[in-house]
Structures are given as C-alpha cells and as structure tokens.
Design a protein around this nucleic acid. Structure first.
Lengths: 204, 204
DNA sequence: CTGCCTACCTGTTGG
DNA sequence: CCCAACAGGTAGGCA
C-alpha cells in the first residue's frame, strides 16, 4: 500500500485515464488498494468532468441551524500533503436509494462492523447510534448520524447524509470513499468520484 | 368580541348559510372572532349536513384500555348555557397529516406558545410534554399528550388525537376549534366543524 | 400482526 | 431571497 503523492501523480498513470488532480474529489486519493477492502467497481472510474467549481459555488453560507452537521473548512494549508497519512477503508457505489429521498446511505455490513463499531463508539455518541465526523476534500467536516436498523439488519448513515449528496451532486453510480488517518484512526475522511459511463462525458 | 348566544343565533345570520344549531359541534360556537387569533378560512364554513347522530351511535362502549383518554360525559344539564363563559383561542383547518396515520395534530406555533405554554404546565405533566384535557360538545373529556418536537420545531398533540379524529369522523379540510373558559382559563374546550365545499353537500 | 406512540428528520414554502 | 414553520415522513418500541 504505497502512497503516491501529488507530484508523482501529475504524470499519467498506466491503465488509468489521464490523471488530473481535480478528478479526485477526495484530495490525493490513494491508488494502491487491497482488492477486497477497496474494490474498483467496473461501473465506476475517475471522471474527467469537473464539478469542483460548482461545489464551491454552492451553499458555503453557514447554516444558522445550531444542529447543523457541517463545520467550517480548516485553512487549506492545514490539509495539504497529509495524504500519506490516510488509508482507505472502503468505498461504495451509490444506489438510487442512497441518493434518493430516503436520506440514508447503507454501509455494507462487513465494512460497518470492521470500521464503525457501534456500542463502544469513538464518535461521541450513545449506545445505539452515534455521530461520525468526516473531513472532505475541501477540509470541510461532515457529521453523519450512524446507526443500525434492526428492521433491515443494516448499518446506515442518516442525518446529514442528504446534505452531502446534494452539495456534492452525487447520483446513483457515483462512488463514495471512506478513509481514516493511518496513525489516528479516529480521524475520518470522506471522498467521492463520479460514475464512469463509456462514451459519455459527465458534466454535471 | 360580543358573544351571540343560541337564541340570537336561531334567526338566520346575514352572509352565512342558514343557521342550524347542530352545525356547531362545539355547542353554541361564538361567531364574533378577532381575525388574527380566530380566522375564518375561506375553504371552511358551517356544514348543514349533520353527523350528530352518527357520533352518538359510535363507540360509546368504554374502551377497556386503561390509558384511554376519554372520560364519561357529564350530565347534560351541567353543560348547558355556559357558552357565554367560553372564549375562542384559535382554530385549525386539518391537513391530511393531521387526520392521517401520523396520529398527531400540529399546533401552529404562535397559538401553542400563547395558550399552551410548556415547561410551566398547568396540565399536570412534566418538563417537556404534558397532558391537556378538553371538553367536547357532548360534555365528554378528551385528554391529549401535548409536546414539542425539537427536530421539527413544532408543537403537537399526539396520544389520544387519533381517537378524537376517528370518533368525530374528521377529514382533511375540517376545522378544529379550541376554546377556554373566560374566567377559568384552565378549563379547555374542543370543537369542530365540517369543511365547506361550494355546491357539495357533505353527508359523511 | 396491527395499530398506536415517541422521537427523530427533511423538503417545501410563504412571509 | 432567506429561513422558520410545518406538512409529511421515518424507525423502533410497545401493547
């Protein structure tokens, strides 16, 4: 699991589309991935069409709601070049439900139980259901309610998730990436990339 | 805010449908209403079609549930001719949700905070959430749980509400009326009237 | 199981 | 145009 930093990535990578740093909306995303934990779904790849500006144009006004999960981005320099310190946990191609009106993301059980144990939470939450805070590619923090639904026997991110989907303009088939800090496993990161569809340039 | 008692109302009222006492399922309901506190929605008016008999035919068998909010009606003579002692608080046209499966009535915030303050309750309840008891047009008492939902920033009647909707056969567009005793503000009253739809006789 | 109940959550919208 | 209010939802517990 070697890390490839931004300078080495600026040259093109074999068997991949031309690399442009902005393709990775999780900044400096690590290519070296154990196949089981970090599959590269056939249906997804890095998308040359860029929404970086759109993201920044959007709601960067602070929501006055005191319960808002979003927090101010850190100063950019605080987040540069710490990619070597991140390890991927897993990624998930988004289903229509994950980006639809259900306002929840189902976390595959094996990943959930490995990385986000409930009941002894490190997220500051209570017995069942806790708050997980993830840093995004802009240094912005996203807090999601994470819990287990007995009825469907599944782990989900609920509160806060729909705002993330909206701000990142995620759609079914896009992929979300979950990482953590190599030395401080409580520092969590979230990223995303666009679905790749053959012959179609996505310019959402 | 003059009161019009039942005898003065038994003659027809200009600009209103023919007045029939039974239109008012809150007995002797007061017509003279401050516009802000007690609006007369365009979509609603007094409904000549009568369900008084239906109400009495209905579940007068005592619900064996120990938590039943309903109590026995007082003897009728105890409730006659005290209309002059009631003042309207507010009314609400019922939404589909108010009469649907959510089993709750949203109380518009300005009315809730004016008439049903939480936290210093006179309803015998605890800090957040108390029981409010209302007398209906038959002298029957209805006890509802009244509380505040932080997440939606709204005041609601919950427990007991669905039984009231069912017994009174209320539908979306019908209006519920809340009154209190002029001298004893702790005595609360609830009434209702049918939605008026132009050209249609409601015979529910 | 069904219906009720509490306590959440969110998209919409009118003021 | 923004945001508080609310209409319309949810899960989970319980009787």
């Amino acid at each position: 699991m070697d890390n490839i930093n931004i300078s080495s990535l600026s040259s093109s990578t074999p068997h991949k589309p031309h690399y442009i740093p902005e393709f990775y909306h999780h900044h400096h995303y690590n290519h070296q991935i154990p196949p089981q934990e970090h599959p590269s779904p056939m249906s997804s790849t890095y998308n040359p069409s860029l929404t970086f500006n759109l993201i920044q144009d959007e709601n960067d006004i602070d929501d006055p709601d005191q319960n808002d999960e979003r927090q101010q981005p850190l100063p950019p320099q605080q987040n540069l070049n710490d990619d070597d310190d991140k390890e991927p946990m897993f990624e998930k191609p988004l289903t229509p439900s994950d980006v639809g009106k259900l306002n929840r993301l189902v976390i595959p059980k094996q990943h959930a139980e490995k990385y986000f144990p409930l009941g002894g939470g490190g997220g500051g939450g209570g017995e069942s259901g806790l708050l997980l805070s993830f840093e995004d590619e802009l240094g912005k923090f996203w807090r999601f309610r994470y819990s287990y639904w007995n009825s469907s026997q599944s782990y989900v991110l609920t509160k806060g998730w729909s705002r993330y989907v909206k701000e990142k303009r995620l759609d079914a088939g896009d992929v979300v990436l979950f990482e953590r800090h190599r030395r401080d496993g409580d520092r969590l990161f979230i990223g995303w990339r666009r679905q790749f569809v053959w012959g179609i340039q996505h310019t959402r």
